[in-house]
Design a binder for these strands. Structure first.
Lengths: 198, 198
DNA sequence: GTTAGCATGTAAGGAGTTACATGATTTT
DNA sequence: AAAATCATGTAACTCCTTACATGCTAAC
């Protein structure tokens, strides 16, 4: 089974809602998912091509054709939609909560797809991420102790700020985990709300 | 004049304090600078090689030789130090405050080297960074308004958290800018302290 | 009718990782 | 004497960007 990279996963998730063409995909990736603020076409189109080749998505060229000319070939505007294989792959990825799900690169995308992820997996990923960040916290604190004297004021401040940032993300995760747990305790809701943060 | 990439700049900055060998450089990069938490040797050593080739640093192999065997060739342990050209290059880079200085990739390293940067340049970079983040804030808010309805609870929460993170960094910068300004007003201190953050 | 935005793609190249390959030194 | 850590390096590969190349469509 070929690996699904983050970009492909994000695309699969997006196309699960509705077929889209490349240009739209790019804009939405920039808008909602974390790590793709301005993904270039030089990345996107080859990726779509690969996904078509591996049968995860299908290209539909008929989009505008009938809207204007009867027999028209307008070129441009290729809508991509999930195939059955694509749906299966997405489902399989969403059910997994392995190591990579809580790494920096992947976590944001997995989180963005929580609406399609079942409650138990959501919780596992949030907890995995929390553990990951705790480890990071320890590492940094350790390194900070070891280099105490080598730091000038600015390096120390940078370190302190980095630490604070991670601590805040841990707090954020704690809230989400708490939310997730109480939602599960009450109803075993499949699509629990993530709101209620001040 | 060849471009100095972030990694080279970080190395130049580190070697300005004292000669180090590759292994040490790697650990310190992970410890103090932001974007290099675990730089691989596969990146580091080729970079050092390039820097030697372009005359910015010099390799000194005599390190351990006299410590143990008189005529000994111990191999291993190559200490790198700045050449005059390297010092010049570092000085030139530190004096610059162009576009790239406040981008995500570069800012942390530039900040870590503030101890060697003059007050006016520090201020320009901090302000540049602040402006950059403000722009980002606007972009995100804009995109958020445009997609309002397409967001499920989790995507919205991810967006909100991202926004909050950027807002906090702006607050952090505001404090630093304030510090920097008052330090300049008082004494025109070249190596002002960055402390005083709760 | 021309500018701005929509839409698709390719080629070259940058910046990094992983996996491999090797060997010295220190600690247990 | 074995294990951990120090130390240096290369080759293949991944993922992404920039710059280029093309053409349609809507608005002013």
């Amino acid at each position: 089974m070929a690996k699904t990279d983050v970009l492909s996963l994000a695309i699969l998730g997006m196309l699960a809602e509705q077929p889209l063409h490349g240009y739209q995909i790019r804009k939405r990736l920039g808008g909602s998912l974390g790590p793709f603020r301005a993904l270039s076409y030089g990345s996107l189109y080859p990726c779509l091509k690969r996904m078509v080749a591996s049968g995860l998505i299908a290209a539909d060229d008929s989009d505008v054709a009938d809207a204007t000319r009867p027999g028209g070939s307008k070129r441009s505007r290729i809508a991509y939609g999930l195939t059955d294989a694509g749906k299966d792959r997405l489902a399989a990825e969403l059910a997994s909560s392995g190591a990579s799900a809580w790494e920096d690169d992947t976590f944001d995308v997995r989180f963005a797809l929580f609406g399609k992820t079942d409650s138990a997996t959501r919780l596992r990923i949030l907890e995995g991420r929390r553990t990951r960040l705790s480890e990071r916290l320890e590492e940094v604190a350790e390194g900070l102790a070891r280099m105490r004297d080598r730091h000038d004021a600015y390096t120390a401040e940078l370190q302190r700020h980095g630490l604070e940032r991670v601590e805040r993300e841990v707090e954020w995760l704690d809230k989400l985990i708490e939310n997730e747990r109480s939602a599960t305790r009450g109803t075993d809701n499949h699509t629990a709300s993530a709101g209620d943060n001040n």
